[in-house]
């Protein structure tokens, strides 16, 4: 059984705030317009129905848990994803015999809920954090019942649709840039110090080493 609830994410850059550079030469007008819009505009639900939307939020909180953030500070992954689906933004590729994003999401969410019932006898929403994690883990390792998936390949939906879209949204947010120490916007001013362990004064300062990284690939089937 997963010990997910015991894991706590700690950023190596607790004092860094990329938005503190807002009025410095690291930000230009066009970037300010784009980032201001991202921060201020939380889209209203348009594409998914209410139940799907609640489920999506629970799934997003499992793949990218943000326990340390208040509701106001939380990166609203479900809202931004729903907007993408509503706008039917495509990324240039439609895999042959694979469902479109608009078809895949409702079906994938329903299948996740069905797996929750099959594994724990309850819907995903009423599961604990550990149980939720274990359901998604089963999906990623293929230990699931193909029946629920109706044409979706569980692992490929999980990685190439769900996780991919989640990280594209999450790591586009300044709060995420802060926690990984990314320099963020850098025009017209870029950087001068490029060498190892070198940092310009306008870059994030590492206050502690990143936590030990869990080895990847070990739970590969």
């Amino acid at each position: 059984m997963s010990r997910e609830h015991l894991k706590r994410f700690r950023t190596p850059y607790p004092d860094y705030n990329v938005l503190a550079k807002w009025d410095t030469p690291s930000f230009d007008d066009v970037t300010r317009r784009v980032i201001a819009h991202r921060l201020e505009h939380v889209p209203k639900r348009r594409f998914l129905d209410e139940a799907q939307y609640a489920l999506l939020r629970a799934v997003m909180d499992t793949v990218l848990p943000q326990p340390e953030r208040s509701e106001a500070d939380r990166i609203p992954l479900e809202a931004l994803l729903d907007e993408k689906l509503a706008m039917n933004l495509t990324d240039g590729t439609r895999h042959k015999d694979v469902l479109t994003q608009r078809e895949a999401w409702p079906r994938g969410l329903a299948a996740i809920d069905a797996e929750a019932h099959a594994m724990h006898g309850r819907g995903f929403l009423s599961l604990s954090a550990d149980e939720r994690h274990s359901v998604l883990e089963a999906i990623d390792t293929g230990r699931v019942d193909g029946e629920h998936w109706k044409g979706l390949v569980p692992k490929s939906f999980f990685r190439h649709v769900l996780l991919k879209q989640a990280v594209k949204i999450y790591y586009s947010h300044p709060a995420a840039w802060n926690e990984i120490g990314f320099g963020g916007p850098a025009a017209p001013r870029g950087y001068l110090r490029l060498g190892p362990d070198m940092r310009d004064p306008w870059e994030a300062e590492e206050k502690r080493r990143p936590q030990e990284a869990e080895d990847l690939s070990e739970d590969e089937t």
Partner: peptide
Amino acid sequence: PTDFATTLVENEGPFGADLRNWMAHYN
């Protein structure tokens, strides 16, 4: 960041606190 995160999750599939932790090694 999103370029690297996409590469990471599509190939290796970490999620949860592990994913945020992995990404904290970005630098």
